[in-house]
Amino acid sequence: MARITASVYTSHVPAIGAALDLGKTTEPYWQPVFAGYDFSKRWFDQQRPDVVFLVYNDHATAFSLDFIPTFAIGTAARFEPADEGWGPRPVPPVIGHPELAAHIAHSVIQDDFDLTIVNRMDVDHGLTVPLSLMCGQPEAWPCAVIPFAVNVVQYPVPSGRRCFMLGQAIRRAVESFGPELNVQIWGTGGMSHQLQGPRAGLINREWDNRFLDRLIAEPDALSRLPHDDYVREAGSEGIELVMWLIARGAMADIHGGAAPKVAHRFYHVPASNTAVGHLILENS
């Protein structure tokens, strides 16, 4: 039986990818950012998951305004790193897990989540930066990845509550998949940042840390937070944090299990315009 063993939460700032690709990780500006992931890389290496279910958002890359899916699951065998205007990141192609992805799609749609199934898309920094942070710079990514894209660009975006419920449905789906698989679920994006208008550059350290506290200890209550709070308190792009609730909803304690173990927690300001938050939760 496939099992979700852990969840990982991390910002997916494009400048982090650029710093990594350009060899700037030891510069004073970037060193503290990457230091926050030293533990994570060792941890990931020990865990050896077979599949990462990676929740992220597309940033006007694979999806233009012609087509805006609220939730899109990638069921293809392979996804190429996208050219976001600077050329594709020099990272390996993403190898999918079509069988598990199709199984999850089947199960979750029968659970009344209205997914869009995607068999062809390129993946942008939202997906590849977290992989780089957790896996470093390997020749090939060490596991299969199921891309799961959430619309947080055009309003209305799905509510935190909806995301949290979806996470629960994903857990049910994974645990009904026959083959023995070690599956992790990652929620990416955030933390506080605003990339637009005279309010650009907003960072709310207190709010972010309270979000991390509550994500660990009271995710159900946190999932009821309205969009308005995210935008007002954590900046217009802080809304990406709703995606973390998908990963959190898939953890065992939400389904009657024991509380997860906090394996790692990290927070740093800034990376470019953004506060970097990162958390690893393990199921016992």
């Binding site: 199984h103 089947h106 199960s107 009904s176 998949f177 026959g178």
Partner: peptide
């Protein structure tokens, strides 16, 4: 797969 596929 333990999915509901009664249509088989």
């Amino acid at each position: 797969m333990a999915l509901d596929k009664p249509y088989k």
